[in-house]
Design a protein around this nucleic acid. Structure first.
Lengths: 103, 103
DNA sequence: TACTTATATGCTTAGTTGCTCATATTGTAA
DNA sequence: TTACAATATGAGCAACTAAGCATATAAGTA
């Protein structure tokens, strides 16, 4: 293992730590999709979305295949959804506690 | 909910996505610790560690209390460890697949 | 062949992050 | 009070990130 401890874990989290990228992952929850479906769903610049997709693929979170003109992306390991879900639960608890403090 | 979807989830992941911060969380797995124990364990600059601790607290991942001169930090929600563990599992699978491709 | 559609990429710019050094703050002890 | 120990913070800098625009590549169609 080169370098400091946990660099790979850190990189994985970093890859997920962007609103657009999480939104992409959510879109891919129910199966693979092509860029031409992802871009309009996100309402972001095509080049922007393409970069986020490329990053997620580079980190091994997504994989892609070509189908004619279309590039189809899918999530490699469904446990990334566990990550997102757990994060939401942590946040929900956090907010509930803050809310209680105000009462 | 202001702004784009998933900004809070993204921020949470971002807070965790640094090797030093993950190392801090690992150190706190078995209970609270003061900065004076954390800094030597990490072998990093005191000011550097302090900033990472401050960031984790600002994001609600850590909480702190004072005990005399010492500042003691602890993990607020143990589910952050689930996040780290799941990340490791994802990485392990990812590496195993790469390894198999080389055989 | 030329044209079109789908996607990726080079370039630039603005904003962010992480680090270090030095200093400030807070609490304890003499 | 002064001195010290533990922690936090301001300033400055290098490195990185995300976004947009324009352009390039790739694959299909006429």
């Amino acid at each position: 293992m080169p370098g400091p401890k946990f660099i790979y874990e850190a990189e994985l989290f970093k890859a997920i730590s962007h609103p657009t990228r999480i939104e992409i992952l959510q879109l891919l929850r129910d199966g693979e999709k092509c860029v031409c479906d992802i871009v309009p769903a996100l309402e972001k610049e095509q080049s922007n979305v393409s970069r986020h997709l490329g990053l997620l693929r580079k980190e091994g979170i997504l994989s892609s295949r070509k189908d004619g003109l279309k590039m189809i992306y899918r999530v490699e390991d469904p446990r990334v959804f566990e990550l997102i879900d757990t994060a939401r639960e942590i946040l929900r608890k956090c907010w509930e506690e803050k809310r209680e403090m105000l009462l």
